[in-house]
Design a protein around this nucleic acid. Structure first.
Lengths: 245, 245
DNA sequence: GCATGTCAACTAACATGTTAGTATTCAATT
DNA sequence: AATTGAATACTAACATGTTAGTTGACATGC
């Protein structure tokens, strides 16, 4: 096997990966283009395809066993989300981080999510409140067990619930798209420290404000919570300058 | 030439337009896909392609003198914006209006634009204020001349300026995408009445609040302004039920 | 050693061929 | 007459061939 991981003492430019580090075999559902899109998107957000990686259609095609059409469509979509840069007549590469992109995503997410949480606080039903408090109890449970992954999942679930309770289905997609650079950058600091209890303490007043049907308090609590993450991302530009443009 | 335009005496279902009502000859700039996209998008928003119209790739291709590839990409993009519905293995048609889509777009736009105007009010420079007041004076001028089109243009320009002053370039695109159903519906009531002076009176306090660096007042004034439009759209579902789903 | 011009390799963008699934038509059956 | 079902016509989705433009390596000239 010509696959060697240690041979070259100098790696020089490893920008072009002769073999994509990880791409799930597409046996999911949906159109081929959709599957390729999800596969690539997942790999990019998980930093398996680090910023600067060249995306070579031909290699992706043979690795996934599809033709160029669905791959092209997938890359086009990724480019429209800002995860990939396309250089006309040349090539596509995974975008590097840019702090202004992250700030912009955070601004958008804050705008949308504050409006959402205020609306939900004003209009929530008892049933919706029940779902949220159940989610909060789940968070507490995972926290007790020290299950960081579980907590992380329920954290995301809480934000999802709030957005969905607005009754506007596309808001979720929009917020995701705008926020995605933040989520990608977040992968970088996940292994560093466990901030779960801090997050949990910030979640409680949000749910409490929804319970009290107090939109203003809900906005404030959510704002505090969202700001925390961006604050923690700011230092990254110094710590990992290689990943920023 | 076997091309005959008069053979069938009965048109029956004219849902499918044998000849697209209007499509600018693409001699603009950008990629073919981009041009086709803009051409179709313009025709849909201007209601030249009314809701329910079937989009026939082949006809669009020969009318614009391009192959299916750029047309396909354009339709895919339109579908992702919700202007076109794609039925797998069947066809694509211009979407009908849905009041919930419009309300969702309005919610999103309000969320983003209120956050933007608050930020701008807090951080604006003298130069930016100058641009805004100049824009306001232009509005007054067009109003005096009874130039509705000119006023409409400056109205849109004002919103554009405010979004751009946030320093976040993609916000503009995002807001447009979410708001587009509202803009399309707006075409329906444009010929009905002239509300320009009403709009102008609503614009003044917005700029005044930005001048005063008062984010809260800016939010309130903008909120009032945006709500007006949606209120006026609500009756449409009764007046033109044929255009709604 | 450094700038410059040529050339080869690669790519996106575009064109076109193929496949398979859907809706509609219309005749056959009830 | 109403229902059904087979055949047709059409489409999106996918595969593949073609074209033209960009990048980067290399050799040449300064």
């Amino acid at each position: 096997m010509p696959q060697s991981d240690v041979p070259s003492p100098q790696e020089k430019l490893n920008q072009a990966a002769p073999r994509m580090p990880l791409l799930d075999i597409s046996k999911q559902s949906g159109s081929l283009a959709q599957r390729v899109y999800e596969s690539l998107r997942g790999a990019i957000v998980a930093m398996e395809l680090p910023p600067g990686t060249m995306l070579r259609k031909q290699i992706i095609c043979e690795q996934l066993g599809v033709s160029r059409s669905p791959v092209t469509e997938a890359i086009t979509r990724l480019a429209s989300e800002g995860l990939v840069e396309v250089v006309p007549q040349s090539g596509s590469r995974v975008t590097r981080f840019s702090m202004s992109d992250i700030r912009e995503g955070a601004f958008l997410r804050e705008a949308v999510e504050l409006a959402a949480v205020a609306k939900v606080a004003a209009e929530r039903t008892e049933e919706q409140l029940g779902e949220l408090t159940r989610n909060l109890r789940l968070q507490a449970l995972y926290l007790e067990d020290g299950d960081a992954d579980g907590f992380y999942r329920e954290d995301e679930r809480m934000h999802e619930l709030i957005l969905s309770f607005t009754g506007f289905p596309k808001i979720q997609t929009l917020a995701d798209t705008g926020w995605i650079q933040v989520n990608r950058a977040r992968q970088l600091l996940l292994p560093l420290e466990d901030r779960a209890d801090g997050a949990f303490e910030e979640h409680k007043p949000i749910i409490a404000a929804i319970q009290a049907k107090d939109p203003i308090a809900a906005r404030k609590a959510m704002q505090k919570h969202l700001n925390r993450l961006v604050e923690r991302l700011e230092p990254l530009v110094v710590q990992r300058p290689d990943l920023f443009e």
